[in-house]
Amino acid sequence: MGKMKDDVVLQVDDLSIVYHTIRGDVKATNNVSFELRKGEAMALIGESGSGKTTISLSLIRKLPKNAEVTQGQVLYQRENGEVQDILQLSNRQLREFRWQDCAMVFQGAQNAFNPVLKVSKQFEDTARAHGWSDKKAVRQRSLELLKLVRLDPERVYDAYPHELSGGMKQRTLLALSVLLSPQIVILDEPTTALDILTQRAIIDVLNDMQEKLNFSIIFISHDLSLAAEMADVVATVYAGEIIEIGPVNDMFYESLHPYTFGLLAAVPKLDHEQDVLTSIKGTPPNLINPPSGCKFHPRCRFVLDRCNVDVPALTEDLGSHLAACWNKEAVVEARKEQV
């Protein structure tokens, strides 16, 4: 088992995942590597079909049946320093790992509750499944957490899910996700499908929770603004690969990959000036027959001759900011011209 740095909770090495379908093998994740530090919030941004959900599902081994992990490892470091490869866990170990070490809040969380059970029952069930059956203690902890997510604890704890609004359910679920004090919480599109003002409440609550409970977050989003607001580290996912990763400010102000750069140039802003926006030409590639070389080359405005032949690797330029591109200089130049 590989060694891990002390402050890293999760380390993904060279992960590749294929979906076997009738039309052929979909290469949904390719040689993905990254580290998640303690207390850090990491955003995976990308468009639909880019493979960001596949990456996150593999972290808790919840991939659909037709998926196969073809290579790589997902190392998890416990608080006592013990390291495990999640891909090698037995079923029993996996049941413990899920929720106790790593919880996941899925997209459309409003539907995650059983409509015929009270919220309290669902908190108790979760606790009992992990060997915690002291109802009083569970209740006390739950009420604390519900308060942390700015809900009326007593009322919500004794309510049925249908008595809560969408935003309240989302917050209740966030409270439930940290019930067993996991080290990692994975959030799949945590604010999509919520109203703007509810979104704001969720973001504020998440920031609060993370500050108080100090867990690590991986969140998946297509919303760049959410990443700008919440993430410490941002990774751009394109065609099943992480093509750029770095601290949030580097990614937004000094992006090195043409795709990240292009995405940022396509997002309207709310300041008081007129936006000058350009979209990226073409459409995301088909992952059964992806383009050769750099998968972004058919859409790239900075394409070079070698781009359709050689696959660029994620390489370090400035500290922890990595980008997989042969022509980063052109992106840097283009940004200078913008200003």
Binding site: I196, T198, R200, A228, E229, F252, L270
Partner: peptide, 25 residues
């Protein structure tokens, strides 16, 4: 306008959010 996050880390984190008296619609 005060609640919407923006695709600019420094700006969006410095933004002042007006608190509603109730979050329930």
């Amino acid at each position: 306008l005060s609640a919407i996050p923006e695709p600019d880390p420094e700006k969006t984190r410095a933004k002042r959010h007006i608190q509603l008296r109730s979050e329930d619609i």
